[in-house]
Design a binder for these strands. Structure first.
Lengths: 233, 233
DNA sequence: GCAAAAGTGTTGTGTCTACACCCATGT
DNA sequence: ACATGGGTGTAGACACAACACTTTTGC
């Protein structure tokens, strides 16, 4: 479960009470109950840590099966990536805490590599989808959004270009509103929101895309009128 | 397991001998043995159908857990995408056959949706990675490669542009060789090969990429010399 | 010479980055 | 007025699609 807090990308970790790895930090989760899907199970386990309504996006990452990933007993684990908007401040139990992904404590099992894989997935999807909605508050100024993107991506982001890219793609829309300017002055920022609150691919990055006029399956298409004489056009 | 055969994208299916779904077609696979990773297990089951050396690429797709995806007993399944070069013609057992993905017979369980998900993954990766190596023969002409891409993508592909895109990205390299021209004449084609035989992302499709000069983590960077007077340049 | 197949040259388009400049507010 | 932060205008780089044209072969 990732969130941008205090300008940093952070992950919710849980301090293990029991062996193995008693006392060290781990990702929240647990066993699958009979009759439950993996997604239901993750949501159930997370609900014990955080109000589920805060969870703005959840997607499957990968199933790990290495026999030595857990000691004593062999366990398969399916990892999920969950995202929480940066303005949510869920009450969390005493045995959990947010940790910056850039400065993780030693983690139990293979959880460190799972966290890093989740971060990579998030970074990729920030580029070509609208997942931003799951990290941002409902309404925000472009600079707020820029800080969220910068924290998640790990590098500076230009507010100018971020605005233009997301507007051109139709990912953001303007609420007519303005945010009052801060105590140190400055022009008030316009408030924006994500047009959709569900995942959408916004950049097909599909080089090798279908030829302009053609339908999806042109394999059966006959090359009508082999152009004996005239060029049309 | 997907392959381009006879100009069509096809999937290797296995006719089930036993209930449930006795007699209908299904994806090859089977139970995980103790101490085995999922990947080892898939390779083991596939080896019973096809020589494993033919498998040029294998990647995990998704784990399905819906309780009603199998009758009577609840089973989780982790789906993998395997690719075989189009010049391989593996000996396959009598109870298996290749089927065009465009014209699947009714499949057991949720296997149809898995096949379609695999095709989507393949199509996406053809655009931004070098996965083509896993579908193409070791050496090929551009038109052969175009036919393979066209079959996998489901639409016409321009040989001209395919060549330029893949060369520009450094994905293909020319062997000095020429292929003899066919019986109907025509200029002989140059032979190319994929520079790498392992998966590589070749198009970052990373809009929102780091600013040109900056290292990966510029969050800790102090904005040295706040430019009191002079502009530098 | 002519058809077939392969390959190159060239133009136009869209999307992005970078950077200069203008705008609105607080003190 | 001027500092602070927000927003627009514009130019250049790049990757790609489309298509005209040239090259090399078989017949």
């Amino acid at each position: 479960m990732l969130q941008v807090r205090d300008g940093l990308l952070q992950v919710l970790l849980w301090r293990r009470a029991h062996d193995p790895f008693a006392g060290s930090w781990a990702l929240p989760g647990g066993y699958l109950e009979p009759g439950e899907t993996l997604e239901q199970s993750i949501r159930r386990h997370l609900a014990q840590k955080v109000d589920v309504r805060e969870l703005a996006h959840l997607e499957q990452l990968e199933t790990r099966s290495e026999p030595d990933r857990t000691p004593h007993e062999w366990q398969l684990a399916t990892a999920y990536l969950g995202l929480v908007p940066s303005d949510a401040d869920p009450r969390i139990p005493d045995d959990t805490a947010w940790h910056p992904v850039d400065a993780l404590p030693p983690l139990a099992f293979d959880h460190e590599s799972i966290v890093l894989a989740g971060r990579e997935r998030l970074r990729a999807k920030l580029s070509y989808t609208n997942v931003g909605y799951a990290l941002a508050p409902r309404e925000f100024t472009i600079s707020q959004l820029r800080d969220i993107y910068a924290a998640a991506l790990g590098h500076d982001v230009s507010a100018t270009n971020l605005q233009r890219v997301l507007l051109r793609r139709g990912v953001l829309e303007s609420t007519g509103q303005l945010r009052a300017s801060g105590p140190s002055g400055g022009r008030p920022g316009a408030l924006f929101r994500f047009r959709k609150q569900t995942l959408e691919v916004t950049d097909q990055f599909a080089v090798l895309r279908p030829p302009s006029g053609a339908g999806p399956s042109s394999l059966l298409r006959s090359r009508a009128f082999p152009a004996k004489g005239g060029r049309h056009r």
